[in-house]
Design a protein around this nucleic acid. Sequence first.
RNA 1: GCCGGAGUGGCGGAAUCGGUAGACGCGGGGGACUUAAAAUCCCCGGCCCGAUGGGCGUCCGGGUUCGAGUCCCGGCUCCGGCACCA
Length: 839
Amino acid sequence: MADRYVPAEVERKWQAIWSEVGAFRAEPISRDSEKAARTGRPKVYVLEMLPYPSGEIHMGHTKNYTMGDVIAHFRRRQGAEVFHPMGFDAFGLPAENAAIKTGEPPAEVTRRNIARIKEQLQRLGYAHDWDTELATCDPGYYHWTQWIFLRMFERGLAERREAPVNWDPVDQTVLANEQVIDGRSERSGALVERRELTQWFLRITDYAQDLLDDMELLDDWPERVLVMQRNWIGRSEGATVTFRTEDGAHDIPVFTTRPDTLFGATFFLLAPEHPLVPDLVAGRPEAAAVDEYVRAAGVMDQTERGAADRTKTGVSTGVSVINPVNGEPIPVYVADYVLMDYGTGAVMAVPGHDQRDFEFARAFGLPVRRVIAGPDEQASASLEEEAMTGDGVAVNSSFLDGLGVADAKRAVIEWLAERGLGEHAVDYRLRDWLISRQRYWGCPIPIVHCESCGMVAVPDEDLPVLLPEVEDYQPRGQSPLAAAEDWVSVDCPRCGGGARRETDTMDTFVDSSWYFLRYTAPQLSSAAFERDVVDYWMPVDQYIGGVEHAVLHLLYARFFTKVLADLGLVGFREPFRRLFTQGMIHRHGAKMSKSKGNVVTPDEMVETLGADTARLYVLFMGPAADDIEWSDDGVRGQSKFLDRLWRLVGDTAAFGEDDGLLPDPAEVEDSAALGLLRTAEATVAKVTEDIDERFSFHTAIAALHELVNQATRGRADGALAETAYGRRALAHAARRAVSLLMPFAPHISCELWEALGGERLWVEPWPTPDERYLVATEVTIVVQVNGKLRDRFAAPVGSADADLADRAKALPKVAAAIDGKELIREIVVPDKLVNLVAR
RNA sequence: GCCGGAGUGGCGGAAUCGGUAGACGCGGGGGACUUAAAAUCCCCGGCCCGAUGGGCGUCCGGGUUCGAGUCCCGGCUCCGGCACCA
């Protein structure tokens, strides 16, 4: 080994060796699921969210993939058969927007970006299984995206319908609800407009309950992600209640979570978009005013209309409906705070016990009626200022009087159900997933529109529907695909008559909703994947990615998996058993991302200090789950650490090989040597636990610093190198440090392992600590007086409580502290502390 | 407004089960080596005081406990998610 650590040389050497090794798996991916039984090796599927090739990877990706690489190496060395694939989420707007600017086809932009990112990943030394690489924009991949879409289409899970949708006026496309943040496009930042358009939806709402229930199948997901998904799905339990118009012409159902307050309904509201509105007011004097109000609501900015603090507005229809529980007619208004796409688009208004209804009642001079009495004075206070929304007992409610809220709900639902006026109901906030995009660079939707047959699926044997080449990628409100007339115009697969292809493409989140399955058969041309292979490797044992996908990718992928399970295509219902969401790296106060222009790539750091230092640093910066502000102030610390380790190994390699068998600690007479051996074994335990159970990489690295520092200090003294035990302890410590460091900094570790006489460190079994060195013979006893630290002393492990108390009291500082006081109590925690309580 | 999470040195952070607060690293100070610098190595490093000692100290105020960064109650601040969802 060289005298001086030159990262570039070491890294070049080992990257060349690894690329010859190829996949890090011991065997190629295969359907031989008996292999596990044969080899006794459990499978572990380690996966990081695949990158979007918009240009280069930055420090956020570096942290993500380094964590995945640590886990993959760690599990492999613990004896698992590890699958650790990598690919590219390659369709999408950035490549297309670049194409619009430069005229270069998106496929080429994408190919170049992928090559660039792959180079970056390999330069960081990640042990990915490149033999299963995939890109979602390859026809061999999107063939099966289309195939899965058609299976959904057959089942009615993919459907085309007119609906109010989010329109992004900058990117000229519709967006899913999940892509709208605070009324703006998550991508372009443009204010989203509401438009009534015919679009493709996937019926994720059919799976709302499954998505909630199956959270129990998840082994270890961050609570905050589960909470976000739960809130996003937004399950509400209540009832639908049907109100009949006074003239008996219409039955209008409402959804309510508070059927117990039915007797308090004093008016009734319809969303401006409610289809009954025109019928209701037709020929009435109110028709013009209602029409005007509906029109105004339609063109209003959605964020503005949705603002919770906005003054309530509305317009009277002049019509009344009958409250089914008491036969009372109540007036019907149209109000824009009622949403058409939640519940039924109609609401029974209970101003006494709903704040929004209360505000509306105030604005329109409508009566407020108490039907719930609160348990205390405050809750029972008059309904002058605000609605009373808390728990209580039903009053002014006929047969419900005296019942608590829960009982009253049950009773009234039963009453309504018996009379056919309502029933128990559950509603969700989750909306169907809008997947069509009016853009070029995406997976074509494999549907043909025929004048006589309507919508016809492209037959499986005609898949994939290839993306046509076009001249102009500029979106013009319809997909650029529409301009490819030769492509658009086809014969109907059913009747052979003239037909036209669907020109929308799919949301890229469709592509990434099943990629983790395709890794198990990336080249397969006869199917999306093979059931037995995919069942062997799935679910992903450890998934790692950004929390920003909590209600996007992570929800969609769960949905897809459930659909595929219901289609009998896979044998599991959840794709990701354990999930770790890493914190985001911020810079200049914003998440690091290309679109924000605040990106730091790993390249310069890798160039100057090496990949190993960069890997260590991104993990050492702080807890893996925490958001951090980027700063490279501390990088040198990791680089110095590797230099120090290099010198330590250089000095100790000459001491000969460490056979790994340690003597009985009692035989080690040299106390410095014994101390170092203890630290070495404790470090094995600490690093193992930090990776395995805590995802605490920064403390694992800190423990390695301590071990190397202690060895270096002992070496510098000269004392250790002069005794046989000392030399042995140094050699052992060096070997342990190198072995444990390998998942974090694989290049230097493999190099130093070789210098220490080993080979192929990446398949070397993960060390286990020699337990004999973990049991101390001597412990430090802390002495407190009244809970305050006064002194400490060393004692043999397992000393009797009374001995410890006596020794504590004999200490001068302790004696002084209790002098003249009465000793009331002695608390002794064996091998830990003595607390003397004196007054 | 509702639901999560977090507040510890100049900075990033550690303290895993209620038991030595500040591990590890950055930055800072001092020293050794050197003609010099870099590199390396060693030492110091929460605040205050009458300094081989003592007092105070983990956002603030209470509480439980022999003992609280850690548990409980109340408050403040910051971050994230949702937000007129009936």
